[in-house]
């Protein structure tokens, strides 16, 4: 107490320069931003690049064959939608990601769960999966075409190959993070290993597993388009290569926008699911 009272006197006499100015405020690095400003920034994030694109194409500095105007891209998009090709391509691509991603999840979640829960499974599987993960899935395209032909199977296989290893390791990581204390307490409450796995580990890890799926769904969507770019007779990727042949950059742009919007939809859907399932983590 007495030290506090004496402090200003000492500071004044000894070191007036180093005394902090009373009006100076120190702000936290991650201090909160008002909600309205957040929405302004979000709008800016989308509208800014759009405006830049519009300004650049309107200035006439760039040949419209290389950079079509937003209006031309919109026209190309509605044109494709009206002729119906957009819908057949869209359903073809969505069918592939739907099948491939579900397969990848069905393989990787049980595998990752086992690895995370059982140390021996971890020791058995982690080295090989850790290695396979570093082989680029796209490099398997020629092999997949030789093995499976240019039909649906090779495209779905590419998607599975590109997603399954990452999702397995990420699932295993999430499962390993279940607190040891929680497992011990469950055992003292009479729960056997299977019960602990299904009633404790699974619900605890579920939000994290959905997070992993969300990250890997983006990769899956990329792989669908890559597969279609190389060998396909339908799909959004195929439509891009067609448009390239005829130098229809407006169509390429329109398809890229569609791909982006679908990706966003997948992301938002999984994010909503995550929020719903993981209400307790808030």
């Amino acid at each position: 107490m007495s030290g506090q009272a004496a402090a200003p006197v000492v500071a004044k006499e000894a070191a007036p320069v180093s005394e902090p100015r009373p009006g100076r405020r120190i702000r936290l690095l991650n201090s909160a931003v008002p909600a309205r400003r957040v929405w302004v920034l979000r709008a800016l994030s989308v509208l800014g690049p759009l405006a830049a694109w519009w300004a650049l194409s309107a200035s006439g500095l760039v040949n419209p064959t290389f950079l079509p105007s937003p209006a031309a891209v919109w026209a190309a998009g509605t044109d494709m939608a009206a002729s119906g090709t957009l819908w057949t391509d869209l359903t073809a691509s969505l069918g592939r990601i739907g099948l491939g991603f579900v397969l990848a999840v069905l393989i990787s979640v049980p595998l990752g769960f086992t690895m995370g829960a059982l140390p021996w499974a971890q020791a058995l599987l982690e080295p090989v999966i850790g290695l396979l993960r570093y082989l680029p899935a796209s490099a398997f395209i020629p092999l997949l075409i030789i093995w499976l032909g240019i039909g649906e199977a090779s495209k779905v296989a590419l998607l599975v190959l590109g997603v399954v290893f990452f999702n397995t390791l990420m699932t295993a990581d999430v499962v390993r993070q279940v607190p040891r204390r929680l497992l011990e307490v469950s055992a003292t409450l009479g729960a056997g290993r299977l019960r602990v796995a299904s009633r404790v580990v699974f619900p605890y890890a579920l939000p994290g597993m959905i997070d992993a799926m969300r990250v890997n769904a983006a990769a899956a969507w990329n792989f669908v388009v890559v597969a279609e770019l190389i060998a396909a007779t339908s799909g959004l990727g195929y439509r891009i290569t067609r448009a390239q042949r005829f130098l229809q950059t407006d169509r390429i742009f329109a398809i890229l926008v569609v791909i982006g919007l679908i990706g966003l939809t997948i992301d938002v859907t999984l994010r909503l699911l995550r929020t719903r399932v993981g209400r307790w983590t808030a």
Binding site: P179, R181, V185, V200, P203, Y204, W280, T281
Partner: peptide
């Protein structure tokens, strides 16, 4: 335990 270790969900 010292930390309650409840099932948060």
């Amino acid at each position: 335990f010292q930390t309650p270790s409840l099932y948060p969900w």
